[in-house]
Design a protein around this nucleic acid. Structure first.
Lengths: 345, 345
DNA sequence: CACGTCGATGTAATCGATTCCACGAGGATC
DNA sequence: GATCCTCGTGGAATCGATTACATCGACGTG
């Protein structure tokens, strides 16, 4: 592959001049510029990003470590992150932690070794020494969706409290009184917060959240299935389960189906995170929708701000309830199909 | 961030010795090794992958350019690719082409500029000059899922012919005679092949595939919706539509639902690509399942073989039909829920 | 005892870019 | 006509690693 030296030789100038042309530095004669450009064209030259990064100490790359690529919520997040980053002149390297702290550390280390300019993380746990060190060492960093308390890093996330209140009011209005939750890992903020928001909202209606109605999941489908089976085996099973993410809701559907039961007649279901398939499941699933695309874009903007020496503030956006039929009684009017929402959201 | 010089100074040795310890070169005394390791520990030193890559001309990185991250099929592919690559000591940088040739080129160029060791591509089109040049220039490359004819690059893919024949036999057995297809872009191999396989299978039953029953989609949901609406507006609408991927099947569901019609009574539906949500849609969707995880792993193995100077052959694996209820008449026994299949597939 | 071998180590070249500094030519200013 | 800029350019240092080559001491052998 041709290097800058080859171009310089071909154009009959020095490498310095070639470099100036490529970075359009002002003081290059029109003639030299033309010769260099011709040589670049002739040789099919492309600058070596590795060498450039070594010299400039910038990679124009962001690292994104997400909890689980197979989760459509994170997939959409990743997509919007890449889109916004590209618009701002950055590339993105994605690391998939699969909800495993060891894998998360692997990817953080790998990204740091590659000298990415900044790191976007949705932490799987309470924060490994590695990540805390990186934050303290001044690596530009932003948390997205989940965060680690006590670390001085901006957080971009959705606030689900209002939507959870709306959900509980909806459920209460439908006559449900025994409400259970499939929680996420207590080591994650979203794992804890969603339970707390749910408990609080129940309290506002004079309802309790007994321990038996808190199932410990891990944001993966299999745990949703296991927890739901536990609920169904209870002497007094809940009337509703609220899954703290969409994959655990999928697991819950599996469990209900495996017993030959029906949603919502035998057990109602609601989920945190709205995904397109929920419109077409049997029955369509009532869910709390996050402004996923907005979150991804805001996170990138905050991170790039930090990288380029500007402020880079935390952002919190509201989530909202989308009522469908999985908790009983269909909504007033059928919702318009979301197929075309793709690039908007 | 500490560099190798700092470590050398701290340990009281030369940078060469530090490098030898780090790459465990044999001729280093136990004492020097211990001192270097202590210094590395003390400084929290991590080698700069950028500098290393520049010198060794290897990045230990694979590029993966996929057609659409939001498509669960490609998400799963990406996941298995990353997994296998990690097992072989490589990282993966994913580029999402979103079915757009210009974006695909953007990512290929970006990956090439970063001097990735090899490229895994699922081409969105018939092959841009850029990609053809890269292949010709000897960049280690493997096509996965889709490929470009006439280019000397190994292909790892699933063969759907057998499964499509099974599907058509199934449909014919249910009494369906007017069968339509939502095709993918003719510029892609999978777009063309699936139509051909379908036409062939129909022929075996003495059925034709009239032009009116071939809808031109682009592998995205919106096109599935549009094409399905066209079918429904026909004087003689088809009894079944076969969507060439899962997103267009989603769009078809949207279209049917928007008209207040029912699957399979008013229109039966089948899809290429099986995804977990198809078990829980209303009704569960009959689909052709690819061995996605295997494809991803085989593709990585082939690519790494090429990179490391071994052969790296093409691989074709069979797809299989999974019958559910979206074409009529439930299957004999309810299929076991696939929740636990995650790490197997 | 001299010499060859081997193991451990350091010096310096190198990868491909960017960028500071020096230099020469040409033009403006007094 | 001397001085001083300005502009275009090239030389060379630099980023942080790897590695060929040189060196040096210790040791084995004839």
């Amino acid at each position: 592959m041709a290097s800058i030296k080859d171009v310089a030789a071909e154009a009959g100038v020095s490498v310095a001049t070639v470099s100036r042309v490529l970075n359009d530095h002002p003081s290059v004669s029109a003639e030299a510029r033309a010769r260099v450009l011709a040589a670049v064209e002739a040789l099919g030259y492309r600058p070596n990003a590795v060498a450039r990064s070594l010299r400039t100490d910038q990679t124009h790359t962001l690292g994104l470590v997400i909890s689980d690529v197979m989760n459509p919520y994170f997939t959409e997040l990743a997509r919007s992150v890449e889109e916004e980053a590209r618009a701002l002149g950055y590339s993105v390297i994605i690391g998939n932690a699969d909800e495993r702290p060891d894998l998360q550390d692997h990817h953080v280390r790998n990204l740091l070794d590659r000298r990415i300019d900044g790191l976007l993380v949705s932490p799987t746990d309470g924060g490994s020494p590695l990540m805390l060190d990186a934050a303290r060492a001044g690596t530009p960093m932003v948390f997205v969706d989940r965060w680690i308390p006590g670390v001085d890093v901006p957080v971009v996330r959705a606030d689900g409290r209002g939507a959870v209140r709306d959900l509980v009011a909806h459920l209460h209005g439908l006559g449900h009184r025994r409400l259970a939750i499939i929680a996420g890992p207590a080591a994650t903020t979203t794992g804890r917060e969603r339970v707390e928001a749910f408990r609080e909202a129940l309290g506002a209606h004079g309802l309790e959240l007994p321990d038996a109605y808190i199932g410990q999941g891990d944001f993966q489908a299999e745990s949703g299935r296991r927890v739901t089976e536990g609920f169904l085996d209870l002497p007094e099973p809940p009337e509703v389960v609220f899954a703290a993410d969409n994959l655990m809701a999928l697991g819950a559907l599996d469990a209900v189906r495996a017993r030959g039961l029906r949603v919502p007649d035998d057990l109602a279901l609601a989920a945190f995170d709205d995904i397109r398939w929920f419109v077409h499941t049997d029955p369509p699933v009532t869910a709390i929708a996050q402004p996923t695309g907005e979150l991804g874009r805001a996170a990138v903007r905050a991170l790039v701000d930090r990288i380029e020496g500007r402020a880079g503030e935390s952002v919190t956006l509201p989530a909202r309830l989308v009522v469908r039929r999985s908790c009983g009684e269909p909504p007033a009017s059928p919702e318009p199909s979301p197929v075309t929402n793709r690039s908007q959201s």
